[in-house]
Computed example of a mutant assay.
Amino acid sequence: MIEISHLYKGYKSGDNNTLVLNDVKFSLPAGSMAVIRGMSGSGKTTLLNVLGGLDRADSGQIRVGEWYLEQMDNAALGHYRARDVGFIFQFHNLIPTLTVLENLLTSIEPVRHPNAEDKELAMDYLEKVGLAAFAMRFPARLSGGQQQRVAIARALLKEPKLILADEPTGSLDEDTGLQVIALLQQMQRQKNVTLVIVTHNPDLSQYADSNYEMRAGRLQASHA
């Protein structure tokens, strides 16, 4: 499903170039879960952004299923993101002027106009994250943890092939976090979804098929 080789990414600031991804190699079979841990600034989120087509690497090869990301133009990357990738962002990225239900349906809109079945499925996912009663509320009336659960339901709604999650349980209490991980695992098994999770939380490692640690832009296999 995912094959990355010799991936480099740097950011320039004046005359300085900071290397954020340094010869990253990564392989993950379809339908499996990888957890990547590391300190803030180690390159974890940058790797997710490159995998999701939100950012481009400076060099290297990235294959995700049938897609070869380094060869694609912006339009093709947009199609890849819309069709195959579900994002769970650390800071939720909910649209404040839309209701909870409408926020979920934004994940469908790049592909097609949401229909009645999409709305029914959206309500089903809101039920699974315990927020069906909040469907008509606006994000400002939700707690941080509730907003995170909305973001998770939004990523799951289009039932993507790949889910990229940045601290998916960071705003959640322990019990709710476990429920979310169970839901992600259910998607993994039933829909053959591939999951890449970056986190500071060592407890998530026990649920992964493979574990990695990012240090100064280098990715290394680690034990749970």
Rank of each mutant, 00 (worst) to 15 (best):
W67L: 02
K44D: 10
Y125K: 03
M72S: 02
A151T: 00
L219Q: 04
V196I: 15
E120F: 05
M214C: 14
L104G: 05
W67G: 03
K9R: 09
Q146D: 07
I108C: 01
S205A: 15
K158W: 07
K119P: 09
T46M: 02
A82L: 07
M1F: 00
V50F: 01
L126A: 08
D73V: 06
D124G: 03
Y125P: 01
L126W: 03
A57Y: 11
N74K: 11
A155S: 15
L28C: 00
A34N: 04
S32K: 04
E174F: 14
H223D: 14
L157K: 05
A208H: 01
K44N: 05
S13G: 11
L126G: 05
R218Y: 05
L157G: 06
E159R: 15
P160L: 08
L183F: 05
A116S: 14
L98S: 10
L172R: 09
E70M: 02
V35T: 04
G145V: 10
K158R: 14
G130C: 08
P29I: 05
V193A: 12
Q185F: 13
V85F: 04
S40P: 06
A122D: 13
Q71K: 08
G53W: 02
I4N: 02
F26Q: 00
L21W: 01
A132W: 09
V35A: 00
M187A: 03
T97F: 11
N103R: 08
A165Q: 06
L204F: 13
T169Q: 09
K191V: 01
E167H: 06
A34T: 00
L178C: 10
L21N: 02
I36T: 06
F91I: 01
T199C: 10
V50S: 00
V196W: 08
E213G: 14
E159L: 12
Q206T: 15
A151H: 01
G65K: 05
A151L: 00
E3R: 10
Q146G: 14
V180E: 04
M39H: 08
M123A: 12
A208K: 08
I2K: 11
L162C: 08
D15C: 01
Q186R: 15
S210F: 10
D124K: 07
G10K: 13
S107N: 12
L94M: 01
A208W: 04
D173H: 06
S107K: 06
D118L: 00
N211H: 14
G31S: 11
S27P: 00
V35I: 14
V198H: 07
G217I: 03
A122R: 06
V64F: 03
L77K: 04
T99K: 11
R218C: 15
L19F: 00
D58S: 14
L77P: 02
Q61L: 13
D124F: 12
G31C: 07
V198T: 12
A224W: 09
M187C: 10
R189H: 14
Y80Q: 03
K191A: 05
G43W: 02
G43M: 06
N17Y: 15
A216C: 15
I36L: 12
A155Q: 07
N16S: 08
T176E: 08
R149F: 07
L219W: 02
G78T: 11
L51H: 03
V24E: 03
F138V: 00
M187W: 10
S143P: 07
K25I: 10
G145D: 03
G14N: 08
G53Q: 04
L131I: 11
T99Q: 09
E66N: 13
M33P: 02
G86N: 09
I108V: 11
Q90I: 10
L162A: 01
D58H: 12
L121W: 09
